[in-house]
């Protein structure tokens, strides 16, 4: 009886730590995606002509995408498949290489765009290619309310 209690007492904090660890990853993933959304907002306004073109904002946004996605793909350990309202598709863990290459493509497109975008017309020509990554990744790797 006592031994069982001892095991329980010692393992509880350990289990709690594990749970916190995976939840933290999920939370961080969601924060990064929110940041991507906030980054996208002014860009789409510029594309639609609702806001004036501003090269500094565009360049900052493209750098932000690259930082975000680089960090994002490291936040998918085995213990973060479920919980905390994650919308991550189980497919991510079945094909981690495919998932990472989709992320790399996004980063590469953003990097390329930062060198090709110099004015409003090159922005309008090149920005949609970068933004298409949002939809194609969500199509393949996200399932809303999966649990």
């Amino acid at each position: 009886m006592k031994l069982q209690h001892a095991v329980l007492i010692f393992s509880l904090p350990l289990m709690a730590t594990l749970a916190v660890a995976s939840t933290a990853n999920i939370g961080e993933r969601q924060e990064i995606m929110k940041s991507n959304g906030a980054t996208t907002k002014p860009l789409v306004a510029m594309l639609k002509g609702e806001a004036p073109f501003d090269l500094t904002t565009v360049q900052k946004s493209l750098a932000n995408y690259q930082d975000n996605i680089g960090k994002f793909v490291t936040l998918f350990p085995e213990d973060s498949k479920t919980g905390a309202k994650t919308s991550a598709s189980p497919k991510i863990w079945e094909d981690m290489a495919g998932f990472k290459s989709a992320a790399d493509k996004f980063a590469a497109d953003a990097k390329l765009a930062s060198s090709t975008i110099t004015d409003e017309s090159s922005f309008k020509a090149n920005m949609p290619t970068v933004l298409k990554n949002c939809g194609s990744c969500h199509e393949a790797w996200r399932v809303k309310d999966a649990q």
Binding site: M33, C134, S136, E139, A140, V143
Partner: peptide, 19 residues
């Protein structure tokens, strides 16, 4: 038209294809 919600989330799953 572009798949973005008002929060600038981008629709996924089958809706990406619909868009």
């Amino acid at each position: 038209k572009d798949g973005f919600t008002p929060d600038f989330d981008s629709v996924g799953g089958s809706m990406a294809e619909v868009v």
